[in-house]
Amino acid sequence: MKQQTLAMAADQGAGFETKRKRTRRDEFLDTMNRIVPWSALCALVEPYYPRRGNGRPPIGLERRLQIHFIQHWFNLADLACEEARYDSTSLRRFVGIDLGGEAMPDATTMHKFRHLLEKHKLGEQIFAEMGRVLQASGMKLNSGTIVDATLIGASGSTKNEQKARDPEMRQTKKNGNWHFGMKLHIGVDSRSGLAHSAVVTAANVHDKHAIPQLLHGQEQRVYGDNAYASQKALIHGKAPKARDFTNQRTRRNGVVDEVARRKNRNKSRIRARVEHVFAVVKRLWGFTKVRYRGLAKNANRAFVTLALANVYLCRRHLLAQVRP
């Protein structure tokens, strides 16, 4: 058994800080530590992870993943994540860092690990693996899919070494305003509300073009907003048995079709579940703007973020299974 240092004892509250209150961050991290399938994710990344050799031994893979997920949960850049772990007792306890006997993994270490995930497209594999784990726990895909897309902003500044904006980002107009960045398209199960597919494109790509990649093919119904109206051919090309339940136009020649309006309202009660995923990704995790240049790097972040959002959304179901 590893000897406990004063630093570790202080972090764990063993005789120190007796008045310390458990925060919501403590509760959140404890919950995530219990329900994230660490062994399955480590097995996924392990074939690409550096082996122990003659040099400095690599940091444990599970710890690397824990630190990487902290960056997503709290929207932290590499250096900010390093400093946050020095400042926060909760974060150090979550990753098992004992400052009395070991050094904190620095920003460069996290930077290299992120590039490893990007190089081998492991973000997408983590998303898929998390989906398999959730399905095995009872969160099955049902007969309906909700498709939707959201804009993720990018910096329009040219004050950089290239003296230019990111060439892979584009601008688009929405609600009378111009936006520059990329677009995250997702397919969400209509019953569980969990994302099962995702596509990342430049912002100027129309929502409808991602439909075939967002359907799993066994749908009976496909829901979407007005951007997906009149796309039956695209839907049936991937899901032949699916009925088009996307919202349709309600105003023609200045006259409102009240029947179509009521139908849209009923569809929107189900379609609203896709907004729960976006709320976690953009409001809780803070993924409203890209952090890196290029679509591939930001797609890797998007897939990992969606995987973590799925776990968060069904946390009560997963906790019920891990309780003794």
Rank of each mutant, 00 (worst) to 15 (best):
Q4T: 11
A10H: 01
D11W: 00
G13D: 05
T18N: 04
R20C: 02
K21L: 15
R22C: 10
F28S: 15
M32T: 02
V36E: 04
P50D: 14
R56W: 09
I59N: 12
I59M: 11
R63V: 03
R64I: 05
H72P: 00
N75H: 05
Y86A: 11
L116N: 06
H120S: 14
L122F: 05
G123S: 06
E124P: 13
L134W: 01
N142L: 15
V147D: 01
V147T: 04
A149L: 01
L151P: 14
L151A: 07
G153C: 08
A154N: 08
S157D: 08
K159R: 11
R170K: 15
M182A: 12
D189F: 04
G193H: 03
L194H: 08
A195R: 08
A198P: 13
T201F: 11
H209P: 09
H209Y: 13
A210Y: 10
Q213W: 12
E219H: 02
Y223F: 07
A229S: 09
S230H: 09
Q231P: 07
Q231G: 13
K232C: 11
K238M: 14
G254R: 04
R261P: 02
R262L: 06
N264L: 09
N264G: 02
N266E: 15
S268L: 11
R271E: 00
A272F: 08
E275M: 11
F287R: 00
V290K: 05
Y292H: 15
Y292L: 04
F303Y: 07
V304K: 03
L308I: 03
L308A: 00
N310Q: 10
Y312N: 08
H317L: 15
H317S: 03
